[in-house]
Design a protein around this nucleic acid. Structure first.
Lengths: 339, 339
DNA sequence: CGTTAAACGTATAGCGCTAAACCTCCCGTG
DNA sequence: CACGGGAGGTTTAGCGCTATACGTTTAACG
């Protein structure tokens, strides 16, 4: 069946298309209440839905937001971690609430970003899952409102949403220090030198009052497993490990146990995120929880403000929104073993 | 900066817009190679990207596909399981390869489906994560090409993609039977009576040559935990549990262990999916692996065929594509304990 | 040499919508 | 009573693209 158009409604209501358009868009300044009521009734009856394409052409605005994610090597999976999935879900919900739609797209380079943005005239984009370097290479054009999740924006033309990583590191450090830990290993993707990672490390160092040993590992269970065994071997005097993600922490814990260390008796393990996996493994992981749903909502909010033309640098120091974190103590952390 | 349009290219190349349009769309019947080359050069130089909105209006086709998912009660998370995430990722990749875009949308009722489809003139939709009942209530209109993942379509106007659930159940049954198990518990969302669940149950029964006991549980770790304890209590003679998902199986295993049963010595546990969690828990879960990436690709393929106007019922019995499954033996299954 | 028909285009119209300019009453006011 | 002005519309133009119909040339062929 053919689409119901403004024209159809206009004909049936005996008014011009513009009047219908005004009613539909709540532009009631020039429409009498009686006419508006009639039009609204017919719109409802006929199930009229405006054409986004036509609105896009005529008004130059789409109410369409792109979620740009890295294309994985196998080209197949794009929402890397449970963390990202949760953020994406909250983002979609928040946008939907504000009558916007979300377009999902994996991108590898500037060309693909341009293509998506221009082809669909996206009002804005949310960028997630890239390292700082990748992000820089992606070179998001300055003229499209953008919000970056979990990375730092270089030139500062875009907004950013991050957990309060420094605070998270500090909470971790304070927790471990209170348990008597002095020799702590910090494990995560330290090579990428992203602000997310360095922030957590800074917070940890600050609270500990000492320099933690760092062990590089990607944020995967398998890397954690290897890192755990390596830590048991190369840092036998460490009494605690703080990992930048729960998946990683879970792997580390398994690796430590496989190497014969007891958790938390011999070594404490502390994760980050409070992902589901923290509750699945045994012992359950103590962790720094971050509010991923809040992150998604904040990203939506920030982006919509940018789209409205708000200048964020006016209100926030570097255009970055920090999401609060909290310590969740479970079974994987305990008092430092005394040698 | 303003958008580069066909007109801009046309002016610069000294030809009409139609010629440029023809070149861009590879419609080279009416264009001399020389002209085509010139136009292509300029298109490249200026970074021309066609406007999807304009194409949509003029050609009535968008190359846009909607991924419809259930809105969760908190309105926030929409990709329920790792399984869904993986399928979505593969779907996006496959569509991208074929020059289509993916729109992500949580929906609760017919109105919202209609709204998304009509507003953006979606060429088709993929529907995932709904129970058979919810799907029926959603009432996807017959005139929009649709592919349903992991559910059965009632009136058969849409295509469907499912794992070969009966075969999966059979593999599970054969594995357990070979290990000497006779008293097997089948655990999953049996109340929903979806074909996915009943198919697996049928396969299991078939291979076992006996009726398994069924225990109802939602597909979550927490429900699994409760179910595990309940099984230990109410079915102490059961020597194996087959769960419809790995998360669930992980919970069941933990519940059984908490109740004092040893896995697999006292009870074997067998999951489904081969999700990451199967490798995280201890003992690692034996499971029936399904190719989620293949599922996403198949959904894309099927949908594109439907969009092209193919009649699937001609080739396939019920318009359903079945994705193969395979048994993965790890640590959670072993020989039946002899009483 | 006249007729055709490829080959290579261009002109026109319209998809559904909105911004902006433009009408036309009718009422209150000086 | 002329006039301003608001209330309640309508008309016009155009967003960027494609389908369709409509020209031109050139070459081939009887």
């Amino acid at each position: 069946m053919p689409r119901v158009t403004l024209k159809d409604i206009a004909r049936e209501a005996g008014v011009s298309v513009m009047t219908v358009s005004n009613v539909v868009n709540g532009n009631l300044g020039r429409v009498s209440p009686a006419t508006a009521a009639t039009v609204e009734r017919i719109v409802e009856e006929r199930g009229y839905v405006p054409s986004g394409a036509a609105q896009s052409l005529a008004a130059g605005r789409t109410r369409l937001v792109g979620l740009l994610l890295p294309a994985r090597q196998d080209g197949t999976a794009l929402l890397g971690s449970p963390h990202d999935v949760s953020v994406a879900g909250a983002l979609e919900a928040a946008l939907r609430e504000r009558d916007h739609h979300l377009m999902l797209r994996a991108v590898e380079n500037t060309r693909e970003v341009q293509d998506s943005v221009q082809r669909w005239n996206l009002d804005g984009v949310v960028v997630m899952g890239f390292t700082d370097d990748e992000l820089r290479a992606l070179d998001i054009p300055d003229d499209v409102p953008a919000v970056v999740v979990d990375a730092s924006v270089g030139d500062g033309h875009a907004g950013a949403v991050r957990a309060d990583d420094v605070d998270g590191g500090r909470l971790a450090g304070e927790h471990l220090a209170a348990l008597g830990h002095r020799r702590v290993v910090f494990c995560g993707p330290v090579d990428a030198r992203s602000q997310v990672v360095t922030g957590r490390l800074d917070g940890l160092r600050d609270a500990l009052g000492a320099d933690p040993v760092t062990v590089a590992a990607n944020t995967t269970y398998e890397d954690g497993l290897a890192a755990g065994e390596r830590i048991a071997r190369e840092h036998p005097d460490a009494t605690a490990v703080f990992a930048t993600a729960d998946v990683l922490a879970a792997g580390i814990q398994a690796g430590l146990i496989r190497a014969g260390r007891r958790v938390p008796t011999d070594v404490s393990v502390l994760g980050f995120d409070d992902a589901d996996i923290a509750r699945y493994v045994s012992p359950c992981l103590s962790t720094i929880r971050q509010d991923t749903a809040g992150k998604g909502r904040a990203a939506a909010e920030l982006l919509l403000q940018l789209i409205e033309g708000a200048d964020l640098r006016a209100s926030r120091p570097d255009g970055t929104v920090h999401i609060g974190v909290e310590l969740v103590v479970r079974e994987s952390t305990g008092p430092a073993s005394v040698d």
